[in-house]
Design a binder for these strands. Sequence first.
DNA 1: CTTCTCCTGTAAAGTAACTTACGTTTAAAT
DNA 2: ATTTAAACGTAAGTTACTTTACAGGAGAAG
Lengths: 221, 221
Amino acid sequence: MRLLLVEDDRLLAEGLASQLEKVGFSVDVTRTAKEAIILGEQEDYKAGVLDLGLPDGNGLDVLRRWRKSNAIFPVLILTARGDWQDKVNGLKAGADDYLAKPFQTEELIARLNAIVRRSEGRVQSSLKAGRFELDENRQCLRIDDGTEHSLTGTEFRLLRCLMGRPGYIFSKEQLMEQLYNLNEAPNENIIEAYIRRLRKLVGPETITTRRGQGYLFNDAA
Amino acid sequence: MRLLLVEDDRLLAEGLASQLEKVGFSVDVTRTAKEAIILGEQEDYKAGVLDLGLPDGNGLDVLRRWRKSNAIFPVLILTARGDWQDKVNGLKAGADDYLAKPFQTEELIARLNAIVRRSEGRVQSSLKAGRFELDENRQCLRIDDGTEHSLTGTEFRLLRCLMGRPGYIFSKEQLMEQLYNLNEAPNENIIEAYIRRLRKLVGPETITTRRGQGYLFNDAA
DNA sequence: CTTCTCCTGTAAAGTAACTTACGTTTAAAT
DNA sequence: ATTTAAACGTAAGTTACTTTACAGGAGAAG
């Protein structure tokens, strides 16, 4: 789970980063507002932690810039103790939570997890294609005939990929990239295996093979 | 739909208010017990959200005052995580639901809608789902076949969470958050252990496992 | 105060579900 | 016809959940 930590106090930043990494985040750290803006806009983070006091600008401006572009990841702001004006402004600028310094790392982790979960919940988009509807929240597939099938994690991710762009041909390599990361890439055959399982659900005609190229989800299904 | 939010943490209050307004409530916010009592007695709300920790008094006293006068709108109380005593007292004082901090706003909204809907039918302090009825006062479970089982504290709290939103998938982490606080968080296995105890009561088909996602109480039970 | 009981949480073993690997068969393309 | 890619079936591997039994602790009863 990628995370952006914007904190100018080097010592604090390093300490936090290492603790956050212990609990499963992969953390990018930056000390300046300038860099924070660029990273937030260009990279795909699951959440951000933002100290409001930065050497080269106000953290709130960073947040506003993020929100103005399309950076939609949830942000937790760190404020000086009792400075609730900052908190209010932070919320108005689009923060999702706040924490007053000094704080316990456990508290930060708990709140981070909370906002990440919350942000995942608020994407209640269900993906529709033809007779099919993929429910992101419940991780299940509904079909026009009224049936509903719950999907396993891998089935779901693969199907979401295909349904996300009906008619587009995804190569096996592309699909592999979406499903796995570089370290833990299994046998390529795995895609074929899962395609087969999905076809059992959606019918063989719904997912078409382009031999040598890849697979596609038929939009006119 | 008018709503009264009693919360002394300014930031939290503002954040909640804005989110609640997004989903169609019109929200009055107050930070003090004194004002809360007056507003609750004089204004016509559809529901109330009440934080128990207030600067100038106990939230429970506010609730009791409301109930003593003719304020009949349903009330959801916010408690510190893992603080059962408050929850129990709150229910006894006439609260209709409770939620442990920190919570997801979606959860609050869902529960608010639930108690409003319920209150329009009539105020009742028992939670019904399918063939089951959870009695808040007696902390016991009644089943359609006429049997009645008393529950232990933990059993009750877990079941209450699940039955409060039938059909919704609660992750183990979510359930942990509602049952325990940061200091006294036991082995994660505890949820599984209690799910099993509950299933012995309600039958294995009533609580469904979604592997990798969580558990849900079947509404069509 | 001591004993007993029941609730709670832990640990470890057992099982089911999901994932991956692999060998074989089938089908497509040249 | 030959080569190559995909499909299929099965089995092994892995992870998540279930089940069970028990130890410690709090509160009730003696």
